[in-house]
Design a protein around this nucleic acid. Sequence first.
DNA 1: AAATTGAGCATGTAATCACTCACTTTTTTG
DNA 2: CAAAAAAGTGAGTGATTACATGCTCAATTT
Lengths: 173, 173
Amino acid sequence: MNAALEFFANEGYDATSTSKIAKHAEVSEGLIFRHFGNKKGLLDAIYMQAEDRVKQLFGPILFCTDPLEVITRILDLPASLEEDQYDFWKLQFKLKWEVEYNNPDKMKPVLHKLSWAFSELGYEFPEREAKLLNTLLEALFLGILREGLLSQVDNIDYLKIKYKIKEIPVKAD
Amino acid sequence: MNAALEFFANEGYDATSTSKIAKHAEVSEGLIFRHFGNKKGLLDAIYMQAEDRVKQLFGPILFCTDPLEVITRILDLPASLEEDQYDFWKLQFKLKWEVEYNNPDKMKPVLHKLSWAFSELGYEFPEREAKLLNTLLEALFLGILREGLLSQVDNIDYLKIKYKIKEIPVKAD
DNA sequence: AAATTGAGCATGTAATCACTCACTTTTTTG
DNA sequence: CAAAAAAGTGAGTGATTACATGCTCAATTT
C-alpha cells in the first residue's frame, strides 16, 4: 500500500502498473490480487484511510471552546502537514475529480465548528464566513502540496492578521 | 483534439487510449501520430491553447481603470465560464500536478492588476490581499468545475459583500 | 503534364497491461 | 504436533497499448 501510494500520488493511478508496485514493494505481483482483489481494490484500500486521517487532523479542533483558537488551529493545519504525508493528500486531491471519491460531507463537522466560531465572534454572516474559509483552506492545502509550504506562508499569515489572530506588523508591504 | 480533450479531461490522459480517441473523432488512429508525433504531442497541442484562453479570459480586465470594477470582474469570472469550456479547464487543473504543466507565472499580470486595484482602494496590504484573492479564485474555479456553479455562488456573493461591491442584505443568514 | 504535398487509411507489431492459477511456505490454532 | 488457514510465489494468459509501415488520393505547385 505504501509503494502503491507513492506511485499513485506522483505518477497517477492509470500510469502505475501493478508489476511496478510489486517490484518496489519487493513482493510478488500475485500477492496484490490476493489481498485486494484487483488494482482498484488497492486504490480503495488506500482511499479508505482518508476518513481516519481527516478525523486525526481536524478531530482535536472540534473540541476547542475558544472560537479564536478554532480559527487559529484551522489556519495552522496546512502548514502542520508532515512531508511524509504529502503523497497521501496529493492522491486524495487528485481523486476528488472522480465523483466516486469526491465527498464534500467529510468537511461538514469542520464547517459547522467554524460556523459556530464565527458566530461567537459576532460575525454578521458566520455561515458564509465559514464556507469561505473552508474553500480557502482547500486552496491552501493544494498550494502547499503542489508548490511547497513556502508558497502559502504569506497567505496564512495575512489571514491571521485579518482574523485578528496576529498583530498587524509595523511596516506594510 | 476535441475528442482527446473530452477524454483527457474526464477519464484522464493515461486512461485514454489513442484508439479510443480516433474512433470517437472518426478518423484513423495513424492520423493522430502523423499530426502530433506521439500521444503526448496531442496533449501538448491541447495544453498550448491555455495561454490564449487565459489571455482571453483575463485580458479585458487588465485594461480596467476602475479598481472596484477589476475586483468585480475577477469575481465574476468563474461563473462566466461556458459549460462547453469546462473540459478544457478541468484538464488544465488536472495537469497542474505535473511540474511540467504547472506555471504559476501565467497569473502574474492578474496578480499585478489586483495588487494595483487594492492599492488604489487604500488597502493596507494590497499585495497580500491580491495574492489571497488569487488563491481563493483558483478554489472558486475548482469548486465550479467539480461541483457545479451552484456550489460557489454564495462564496462569490459573500466576497462581493466583503469587498463592498454588493449591498449587505437586510436579513443575515 | 509532371512533381510534390498533406490528409487519410488498413494492417501489423513489440511491449505492456491487469489478472489467473497451481504451487510452496509460513503462521495460527484445536 | 498436525491440520487448517493464511501469506506468498512466479510463470503464464489474452487483451490492449502506443506507435510503425506502406499505401491511396485529391489538391497544389512547378
